[in-house]
Design a protein around this nucleic acid. Structure first.
Length: 262
DNA sequence: GACCAGGAGCTCC
DNA sequence: GGAGCTCCTGGTC
């Protein structure tokens, strides 16, 4: 794959890229030396594709809310400081007594929604960063320059101090081989946050939780009322030929993987 | 029964 | 002509 070369000018897709409705954004991204993320232009409609599951965050997006996730394997990344309007968000990552009754359900739902928002926003940021920085979606392909670009962008996005200076001379491969403890060693305050963000970048695999629901919503999006999963899956298989989607190496039912563009 | 894979025909732009 | 939907057959789990 050639996308890893420094200065490469291609426009990379997000690991979660499904289709391409952001032509307007692409037009100015190509000449973006200024890496300030366009906060108001982060929209990527397909990222809120309902009924899709992300293994590392156990995310299931439903029709009523863009993203719903269940925390079973990994915590959501730390909330960006600039995106913390809800009081509940301060509770992320903190141990809590299990809620009880209606009040507990409401609180749990609020927490889910906040977590949903955070992860959804981070996933949008991934796609935006790929285009803004001209870097590959797969961190394994990053050069040292790309790593620094990513760090500078993350600094800017989350108003961090100069963490990039603590990760110099590291390629993407080096970065991916580091543990969370390694990250914390380099930045005790923000290492875990950076590690969580990198973890999202490394995720290319998703699972369809409710095939019927996904098919129904796909039909709504495509204005095909008769859509069902049989037809949807046929469409997905068409993406195999285009190199957009494939089955993971260990094939499982309803599990697909986005393919990095060449 | 549900999912997977792929061929072939069709419609739409 | 390409993209995507639809229908179909056959296979696997």
């Amino acid at each position: 794959m050639s996308m890893g070369s420094p200065g490469c000018e291609h426009t990379a897709h997000s690991p979660l890229y499904i289709s391409h409705t952001h032509t307007q954004t692409m037009a100015w991204l190509d000449k973006a030396d200024d890496v300030k993320p366009p906060r108001g232009l982060l929209g990527l409609p397909e990222l809120s594709w309902p009924g899709v599951y992300l293994p590392c965050y156990d995310i299931l997006a439903l029709e009523e809310s863009p993203w719903v996730l269940r925390m079973t394997e990994a915590p959501a990344p730390a909330a960006p400081p600039s995106r913390t309007p809800e009081p509940n968000q301060a509770k992320l990552g903190q141990p809590q007594d299990p809620p009880s009754g209606m009040e507990g359900q409401v609180e749990e739902r609020s927490l889910e929604q906040v977590q949903t928002m955070v992860v959804g926003e981070v996933l949008k940021d991934v796609d935006t960063a790929c285009k803004l920085l001209n870097i590959a979606p797969d961190p394994m392909d990053w050069s040292c320059v790309h790593v620094q670009k990513w760090l500078l962008w993350t600094e800017h996005l989350h108003k961090l101090p100069q963490v990039s200076t603590m990760f110099q001379e590291l390629s993407g491969r080096d970065l991916c081989s580091m543990t969370e403890a390694d990250f914390r060693q380099r930045s005790s305050q923000f290492g875990d946050m950076l590690y969580a963000h990198l973890d999202i970048w490394r995720s290319g695999i998703f699972k369809i939780e409710d095939s019927a629901l996904v098919a129904r919503l796909w039909g709504m999006r495509k204005n095909r009322p008769a859509m069902n999963y049989d037809k949807l899956s046929r469409s997905i298989r068409q993406y195999y030929k285009k190199g957009i989607i494939r089955k993971p190496d260990v094939s499982r039912r309803l599990v697909y993987q986005f393919v990095n563009p060449i």
